[in-house]
Design a protein around this nucleic acid. Sequence first.
DNA 1: CCTACGATCCCCT
DNA 2: GGGGATCGTAGGC
Length: 185
Amino acid sequence: MIDAEAFDAEAADIAPLLLGAELLVGGVGGRIVETEAYDQEDPASHSFAGPTPRNAAMFGPPGHAYVYRAYGIHWCFNIVCKRGSAVLIRAIEPTHGLDIMMRRRRTGHVRDLCAGPGRLCQALAITKAHDGLPLGHAPFALSWAEAAPDIASGPRIGITRGVDTRWRFGVRGSRFVSKPFGSRG
DNA sequence: CCTACGATCCCCT
DNA sequence: GGGGATCGTAGGC
């Protein structure tokens, strides 16, 4: 299980460290294979303009969840790091509760179950109800990778500002990421 | 394979 | 009143 103090650090340092970690919600989930970092100096970050009701969790304790709604439809799940920063969990390799996730996602395609921030929240049943909750307690279970995987990086997905900051990280060669990484990543 | 676009909510200006 | 840290489907090649 995690030590919350470990998350009181730069999101850009924590994001690659989370690759290979196991994330379960209510016993359902798998291995993190794709992350992105956001911090307060970053114009792409929800925290860029300071605290607001939506991003309050980003200014709360490290090691807690920040969950927001994207495009009016999807939930997206972050792990809060040092004040005003967080790591967006973008993809998971499903390992626990495949049948439950397939039912929630209404698909039999394991490869797409958790490939993308909205999809993984649907598969793990993460909603606004989890916003601000500590990751060291139920329903969450988070354990660091036993061995560091080979890591790819590149520009973040779906943003219009801060596009040159290469704060997207992935397990090199994983077929469960939301989009391939360039061979130079 | 690829690109285009609509859905739908809450926050923020 | 504008605009997303997205996804699924439709259509073309």
